[in-house]
Simulated scan of single mutants.
Amino acid sequence: MTKRFILSLTIALAAVSANAQFLFRISGKKIKAPSYILGSVHTLPGALLDSIPEYLEAEAKCQQLYAEFDISNQQKIAEAQTAGQQAISLPDGKTIFDVLNMEQMDMLNYRFKEVFNVNFTDSVMKAVWNYQPNVLITTFNLIFTSQEMQKHPELGMIGTPIDMFCINRAKQRGLSFGQLDEIQPEDKLKKMRDSLNAKIDVQVDSLVAFLSDMDHRKQMIADEMNSVATTGTYWKQGDYNSFAQSEYWISQVNKQPELFKARNERWLPKIKTAITEAPTMFVFGAGHLVGPSGVLQLLRNEGYKVEQIKVKR
Rank of each mutant, 00 (worst) to 15 (best):
S176C: 08
F177G: 10
L180Y: 00
L180T: 02
D181A: 03
E182P: 05
E182C: 12
I183T: 11
Q184M: 15
E186R: 14
E186W: 11
D187G: 02
K188M: 12
L189V: 06
K191W: 02
D194N: 14
L196E: 07
N197R: 06
A198G: 15
K199V: 04
D201E: 15
D205G: 11
S206L: 11
S206E: 14
L207S: 01
A209Y: 02
A209K: 09
L211A: 01
S212M: 07
S212E: 07
D215M: 09
H216V: 12
R217E: 08
R217S: 07
R217T: 01
K218L: 08
K218W: 05
M220N: 13
D223G: 06
N226D: 12
A229G: 11
A229T: 09
G232I: 10
G232E: 08
T233C: 13
Y234A: 03
G238M: 04
A244E: 01
A244L: 02
Q245A: 14
Q245G: 13
Q245K: 08
I250T: 11
V253Q: 04
V253S: 06
V253A: 07
N254M: 09
K255Q: 13
E258V: 07
K261S: 15
A262Y: 11
A262M: 01
N264Y: 01
E265R: 15
E265Y: 02
E265T: 14
W267S: 01
K270E: 00
K270T: 01
K270C: 08
K272Y: 06
K272I: 03
T273D: 15
T273Y: 11
A274T: 05
I275N: 05
A278C: 06
A278D: 09
A278P: 03
F282P: 05
F284Q: 04
A286T: 12
G287K: 03
G287D: 07
